[in-house]
Each structure stands twice: as C-alpha cells, then as structure tokens.
Design a protein around this nucleic acid. Structure first.
Lengths: 148, 148
DNA sequence: TAAAATTAATTGCTATGACAACTACTTTGG
DNA sequence: CCAAAGTAGTTGTCATAGCAATTAATTTTA
C-alpha cells in the first residue's frame, strides 16, 4: 500500500495542517493549540485531577503536566492541591483564563469553518463518527497491550 | 462548541492514537513512525531532493533533515549530492533500507487493519476523501497567508 | 500497624513539529 | 562578469509526544 493511501498517514497529515492553520490564527493570543485544548477542557469541566484531565484530552499525563506549567506561567490556571488526596492537584481556571477562553473560542470556530467549508453537515457528522470509531479501535488495541 | 465536537480535536486525537499503536508495533524495528513515512516515501519514489521529499510527506523541510539524520545514522539511507545542483542532496535508500521497508510494510498494514476493523471499504474510502478535502482546504488557507 | 504495593504528579530523555537565522551554492540583473 | 537576490540544506530554539524513573502520598496486606 502506498503512503498516500494509508489512513494513518492521511490522518496525521490532515491533523498537522489543521493544527498549523489553527496555530496561525491563535498566534496573536500567545496560546498554542495544545494549550488551547487543555484550557478549553478545563473551562468545560471543572474539578478534574490532572490524571482525569489527561484522559479527557487524550494526552499523556506527562504532557499535561507541562502544558499546565505553561498555562500557569501565563496566569491562566492555578494548581490547587486536592484536600481529599494530597497527591493530586485540581487545576483551576483563573479569571484571566476564562477571558482568554472567551477570546479564543470564536477564533477556533472560525478555523473549523474554514477547513470544513466544502462539507455538508451530514458529511461532517459522518467524518466525526468514522474518526471516533478509529480512535476507539486504536484505543482498544493500545489497552490490550498495556494492562498487566 | 465543546472540544469533543471539534473536528480539529477529533483528528488530532485519532492521529495520536493511531500513531501510538503503530509505534508500539514498530518498536522492535527501532524505527519511529515518522522515520517510517519518510523511508516509505523514498522507497516508492526515488531521486527526490530533500525539499521535494518534504513536500511529498507533508513535512517541514527542517524536520525532514533531522529524520534523514536518523535514517542515515541507522544506515538506511545515504545523502548523495546532486551533481546538477550542488546545494541539493538526493537521499538514496540503501540495501538495508529496502530490507527494513520490506520488513515494516506488513507491520503497518496490520495496524491499519486493526484500527479500521469495523469499517467497510466504502466507509474507509469516504473517510479518506473527506480527510483529503479538509487537508486541501487547510493547505489553501495556509498558503493564503504565506506567499507575499 | 508497619512494610509493601499503588497511585498522582513530576523530571529526564529522545524524537518531532514549526519557526527564525545561517551557510553554501545558483540564478538574476545591471 | 559581478553583485544582489534567491534557493537547498542545516542548526538553534521552544513546545509537544511518549516512555522510564523518581518523589510524595495513599491504600493494601501481612
């Protein structure tokens, strides 16, 4: 099978381009695309531990630690120690973080509309479902090799 | 729009998982997924300059330089100076590189079949087309901001 | 209850992505 | 023909992905 026909390659390539375009539109905010995904998730769903947060954004916990470092350095979140379990931290979005979220959300929506401009809502919905199925299958096979 | 509905997020997440699964299956070969994509492209299409190669794998030329460094260190490719233009190098796959390609290709095909196990050929083909449309749209908008 | 096993978070390390700056070579234009 | 502009590749830097190992705290177990 040629590279251009490999679904893995196509997903990666498309992801890189979309990310790059989003990065271009977010450049003025000083926030990276990955920082955005973490901030957005925290704004949508509060009181998550870092471990839970990592799972919710499908990132390695290690990477979440470092992305939170960046967001904390920028004053957009703070780490609060969980009183129930002092090992865990509950990242909390600051007022500045919420303001940034409000500013960035429409920028992201705009990029989404740019890259999906030729697609009907039905096609978009099909695409999302197919991607989710592949992500689920990959996740299952990843777990097959991990837990023991 | 919530993060889970953002097509950008879904593509990135799916890509990360597929890449991770592929990495797991390639671990024994000592080749990373990105090194694989470059090696595969070179095996499919020879006599490319690094710049052309970068374009063919949709990677930054900088990253291709470093991936070629790795492949060269492993003895899978060599850089040959282009006699027509001494600025450019023509990476060339060695016998070891071709052997690695032959070994890895079936591993990759297997991973692809694992992650697409629930999809019909028609669905897979739809998915590829939709991804290509998004990649094209993103590419167009990226170029809008570059050439001036 | 004290030691052992687990767990949450962090740090160290390597590879990659992306951008800026630099070097070496080529092409252009006067 | 030569200086200026352009081009291919490389290197430097920062952010991120992922793995291994470490630390601090909690739970389990003997």
């Amino acid at each position: 099978m040629l590279l251009d026909d490999s679904i893995g390659f196509l997903i990666s390539r498309t992801g890189r381009r979309v990310t790059q375009l989003l990065a271009l539109h977010l450049a003025s905010t000083g926030i990276t695309t990955e920082q955005w995904s973490v901030l957005a998730r925290l704004c949508e769903e509060d009181a998550l531990s870092q471990k839970e947060l990592a799972s919710r954004v499908s990132k390695d916990q290690t990477n979440v630690t470092r992305i939170l470092d960046q967001l904390e350095r920028k004053g957009l979140i703070v780490r609060v120690v969980n009183p129930e379990d002092r090992r865990s931290h509950l990242p909390s979005v600051t007022a500045e973080g919420r303001a940034a979220y409000g500013e960035i959300a429409p920028l992201e929506e705009n990029v989404i509309s740019l890259v999906t401009e030729g697609l009907t809502p039905a096609q978009l919905s099909t695409l999302k479902e197919l991607l989710n199925r592949i992500a689920d299958a990959a996740g299952r096979h990843l777990n097959d090799n991990k837990p023991e």
